[in-house]
Design a binder for these strands. Structure first.
Lengths: 236, 236
DNA sequence: GTGCAGATGATTGTATTCGATTTGTGCTCA
DNA sequence: TGAGCACAAATCGAATACAATCATCTGCAC
């Protein structure tokens, strides 16, 4: 997670404490430690990180551009509560871009990359066998990381940034609408994609990727949880 | 441009004056009234819009997430000066997503949409025949608007947002590296795409779209303008 | 004349303050 | 008892103030 930092923040990496707060909250959201709808008060965030509201506000603003946080005027910031429609759009976008990204990545991949990815999958596999919330969380994260590694290999920062957003929001969606621990079924598919890449069978890799995303989405229970809006969720 | 506003800002549309400033600067950049490398001092921006530095800063920050503005720590904000590599990545991303978006849009398009788009192209054509900087600027903008209309028809906000970013940055790139007024050659291609859509010949539309983007990129003179950095550009 | 050191001015980074808006609570009155 | 209104608390929105950083300019030594 260390050397990724450079890739994760292509523009204005410094920005003092804002970036730090942003990353921390982002990770917390992706790992499900913050559940959708949770209120993120500027004062609370600020005091939590020992900074003023100014920086907290900037961080929350930044997260709202990624779609992870919803800011309502004069109300405050809340962890995003993606609607089923939003979820569908996110996965439609992934279906659209990921095969293309994979194709580009395949052109740049080295054997070193392949073994590194294999290691990543092995780690992911270990997590799968563990029980408990933290393992489950780490698993969600690791599952996303595979896709991010692929997009990094495409050597296209614009696309990589977009994928970061999509993966983060996907995690949120899975956390919300995920039916089972069936993300484990995705694990095999990750391996299969990697095998195809190793054999330079790019078309098969893309096919598998498409099925993979399809499977993830199929495991969701995309039914409206709320009648009018997510308003009620705040009070809990 | 009025009713598009709702689409343009899916999240947190209010945000007081920040959004206004952001739109104004964004439009100025896209229309080439602000050239790449120009310094955007927080105080200057603030006094220009009669707001405090706080709001100016927020607007610049927001623009930096779109890639239109570059913020350097303790240095300030500058209109982005995309590198040739960045330009290539932007167009690679467009090549990747636009055919897919077009395909989705084709599924939703109505005859009303088609006539509206025809009108848009007609307006664009008028601008092409005019001379002068302002006409050229409006033409650049109109050319991008066609692609944005298509992405709006895809009814996928996530993808639409991404396209907004790509189109805006493309304008910047064209302003920087554009060789001729050859964006006019793209006009015919827009028409051709629309004709294919009208005939429900989706594959041909996608093909044309790919060629179109290719042509735009081919018209660029993607050679590094600066040796070390864009530092010199600031002083001018 | 050239090069380094310190001072100075401008600009950004962050905190604090004041004002506006919303929400929640309790009171009054029908 | 319940609806409506008014006041109070909390939170956000924006502006201002202060601190830190960087760029430049000057002056002195070599």
């Amino acid at each position: 997670m260390n050397d990724r930092e450079a890739i994760l923040s292509p523009y204005g990496e410094g920005d003092g404490g804002t970036q730090h707060i942003r990353e921390a909250i982002r990770t917390a959201i992706v790992e499900r430690r913050l559940s959708p709808g949770t209120k993120l008060s500027e004062s609370d965030v600020g005091s939590l990180f020992n900074v003023s509201r100014t920086l907290a506000r900037a961080a929350l603003q930044a997260l709202s551009y990624e779609g992870l946080v919803r800011v309502e005027r004069n109300r405050g910031a809340f962890v995003a509560y993606p609607s089923p429609e939003e979820a569908r759009q996110i996965f439609a976008a992934r279906q659209l871009v990921e095969p293309g990204i994979l194709r580009q990545a395949a052109g740049n991949i080295t054997s070193d990359d392949i073994s590194r990815l294999k290691q990543l999958l092995a780690d992911e596999g270990k997590l799968m066998n563990e029980r408990g919330q933290t393992a489950r969380r780490a698993e969600i994260k690791a599952s996303g990381d595979f896709h991010l590694e692929i997009s990094a290999l495409s050597q296209n920062l614009v696309l990589h940034r977009f994928m970061e957003e999509l993966i983060a929001r996907s995690s949120l969606v899975i956390a919300l609408y995920g039916r089972s621990t069936a993300s484990s079924c995705g694990h095999n598919e990750h391996e299969h994609i990697l095998e195809c890449l190793a054999k330079n069978n790019i078309d098969a890799a893309c096919q598998t990727m498409l099925h993979h995303i399809e499977h993830i989405e199929a495991d969701l229970d995309l039914r409206e949880r709320r009648g009018v809006s997510l308003k009620e969720a705040f009070e809990l």
